[in-house]
């Protein structure tokens, strides 16, 4: 039992995400391959949309990985290589969308809501008046002393 548990823990410890990149796609130059690999992790596969092309086994993702490596081998900068795909499939393929006029709400919307909520809470808390202490009326005083001096309610 203990051995099995240890074994399971060891397997979990060494489990790393496996990319779908096949050996035949990889570039011979490790520096270029590293760049291509990093870029492909941030590019969305348009077939299985919540995977990057680096993770996806879709045939089109493979084509796009190869195209990306071709562009990089041809001397494209990272920006140009990504731009090549964005020109065809749109900004949607960027898993980290660029900050633009139409993505402002996406980038800063949650922050704006947090600030608005915080501001509202601050105004509310600061505007609260402490409860004013007023003396009891003579009748109330009499009632209180009667209640405190007897065990019976009413």
């Amino acid at each position: 039992m203990r051995r099995a548990l240890l074994m399971a823990l060891a397997m979990m410890a060494f489990a790393t995400p496996v990319a779908a990149v096949n050996p035949d796609e990889q570039l011979a130059d490790p520096a270029l391959e590293a760049r291509a690999h990093a870029l492909s992790q941030d590019l969305r596969c348009v077939v299985c949309q919540n995977q990057s092309i680096d993770d996806s086994d879709a045939a089109l993702a493979r084509d796009l990985r190869i195209i990306l490596r071709e562009r990089i081998s041809a001397g494209d900068t990272d920006q140009q290589a990504v731009g090549f795909l964005v020109a065809r499939y749109g900004s949607f393929v960027q898993l980290e969308p660029p900050v633009r006029l139409d993505t402002l709400a996406l980038w800063f919307g949650p922050l704006a809501i947090l600030l608005a909520g915080g501001l509202g809470a601050a105004i509310y808390i600061r505007g609260r008046k402490p409860a004013t202490v007023t003396a009891l009326s003579a009748d109330d005083e009499a009632e209180v002393s009667r209640l405190l001096n007897t065990d019976k309610a009413n």
């Binding site: 077939v47 045939a59 084509d63 065809r88």
Partner: peptide, 13 residues
């Protein structure tokens, strides 16, 4: 056959 003409048009499937 390579799919490149389609990719140039943004074909995804």
């Amino acid at each position: 056959e390579s799919g490149r003409a389609g990719i140039d048009m943004g074909v995804s499937a």
